[in-house]
Amino acid sequence: MSHTRRTCPVPPTAAGTVPVDPVHRPLDLPPARGPGDRAVVMVHGFTSGPHSVKDWAHALAERGSRVIVPLLPGHGTCWQDLNRVSAEDLRGAVRAHVDHALTEHRHVVVAGLSMGGALALDAAAHRPVAGVAVVNPALSFGQPLAHAAPLLRWVVASTAPVADDVAAPVSEHAYERTPVGGVAALGRIQRAAVRGLPRITADVVSYWSPQDHVVPPSSQDRLRAGLRAAAFEQVRLERSYHVATMDRDLPLIVEHSAAFVDSVCRKAARR
């Protein structure tokens, strides 16, 4: 399952010196059927890219949604680039894609995996989306030392990778190192997402793997406690680890989330 990633030149040069890995090119998938009035903006996870959610994206497109999977800033090139990206860069990129989708479609659902789930929830707190579907959203850290990342980033540039937590024999093609500056940005994203949860009014579904070895159960607890104005459903993924969008419960995620998108878009149309 290992995948050797390219390394940025040393000393670091401007972001963008390393081409985007073709496996992580962004996706913009037209709906295979339906009226074309809905879009799903789907957000990948930390140090990974669109490849980790592409099967989910294609399945929802086949079931009638336009699906947009952007490549987030600092991703898809080399881990050093992610050390130069802020939480505001990442949050702003997702909101920009949601805003664009809202200009072209009557209904927009935000979806995401891990950090992408936190970013989807953050966007839903500030944009009039029809629904939110998240897979193992990262609203808390599993490693206590991660909270020290804002200070540690000035001492150490990277740590061991947090990738390929998958029961199935596949790889998400994530970075071979975890950028500490990126972890600091992720912590700020988590705090902003949790603060915004009470503002979300769209229905939320969370697909949760009890065997997740990356994001702790406290993330689900924070999500459930923070949603005060939104209907919330949790779906357990008993056969998958953290990257469940590439794991053995993907068929369950696909079928349930496709029905969820249909339901929330019909509900929004009646308002």
Rank of each mutant, 00 (worst) to 15 (best):
residue 104 E to D: 12
residue 154 W to Y: 14
residue 104 E to S: 13
residue 47 T to H: 05
residue 107 H to Q: 12
residue 79 W to P: 03
residue 119 L to T: 11
residue 238 E to Y: 02
residue 226 G to F: 05
residue 19 P to Y: 10
residue 116 G to T: 13
residue 77 T to D: 00
residue 59 A to I: 00
residue 269 A to K: 10
residue 194 V to T: 12
residue 48 S to R: 02
residue 35 P to S: 07
residue 259 A to F: 04
residue 227 L to C: 09
residue 41 V to T: 06
residue 201 T to M: 01
residue 243 V to R: 01
residue 250 L to M: 09
residue 42 M to I: 01
residue 253 I to H: 14
residue 164 D to E: 03
residue 217 P to D: 07
residue 67 V to E: 05
residue 31 P to A: 14
residue 262 D to S: 15
residue 171 S to P: 01
residue 171 S to H: 05
residue 195 R to E: 13
residue 13 T to I: 07
residue 183 V to Y: 03
residue 73 P to K: 00
residue 212 D to Q: 04
residue 26 P to W: 02
residue 139 L to G: 08
residue 121 L to D: 03
residue 59 A to Y: 02
residue 27 L to G: 04
residue 173 H to M: 04
residue 257 S to P: 00
residue 3 H to G: 12
residue 16 G to Q: 14
residue 246 M to A: 10
residue 261 V to P: 04
residue 70 P to C: 03
residue 89 D to V: 05
residue 123 A to K: 11
residue 80 Q to R: 12
residue 219 S to P: 10
residue 133 A to Q: 07
residue 243 V to D: 10
residue 193 A to H: 11
residue 150 P to L: 11
residue 125 A to N: 07
residue 30 P to Y: 02
residue 168 A to T: 07
residue 86 S to N: 07
residue 222 R to Q: 12
residue 27 L to Y: 06
residue 38 R to C: 08
residue 63 R to H: 07
residue 65 S to R: 05
residue 144 P to M: 15
residue 94 V to I: 04
residue 105 H to N: 09
residue 37 D to S: 07
residue 268 A to N: 04
residue 174 A to D: 06
residue 262 D to T: 12
residue 227 L to M: 12
residue 55 D to C: 00
residue 144 P to E: 15
residue 11 P to A: 11
residue 150 P to W: 11
residue 75 H to E: 01
residue 109 V to G: 13
residue 207 Y to C: 08
residue 220 Q to D: 01
residue 74 G to Y: 00
residue 194 V to E: 05
residue 251 P to H: 11
residue 163 A to P: 00
residue 51 H to G: 00
residue 74 G to L: 02
residue 93 A to F: 11
residue 155 V to Y: 03
residue 80 Q to I: 04
residue 227 L to S: 09
residue 127 R to E: 13
residue 194 V to Y: 07
residue 97 H to I: 09
residue 79 W to R: 03
residue 39 A to T: 10
residue 24 H to G: 04
residue 40 V to A: 06
residue 73 P to A: 04
residue 27 L to K: 09
residue 177 R to H: 12
residue 17 T to G: 02
residue 265 C to A: 14
residue 10 V to I: 13
residue 103 T to S: 15
residue 127 R to Q: 14
residue 77 T to N: 00
residue 203 D to S: 15
residue 123 A to H: 08
residue 251 P to T: 14
residue 77 T to C: 01
residue 245 T to G: 14
residue 109 V to T: 14
residue 101 A to W: 10
residue 12 P to M: 05
residue 253 I to W: 11
residue 162 V to A: 06
residue 222 R to L: 15
residue 64 G to L: 12
residue 194 V to H: 05
residue 138 A to N: 12
residue 41 V to I: 04
residue 73 P to E: 03
residue 14 A to W: 01
residue 51 H to E: 06
residue 210 P to S: 07
residue 93 A to Y: 10
residue 208 W to V: 15
residue 22 P to Y: 05
residue 75 H to R: 02
residue 207 Y to D: 10
residue 136 N to A: 13
residue 105 H to Q: 04
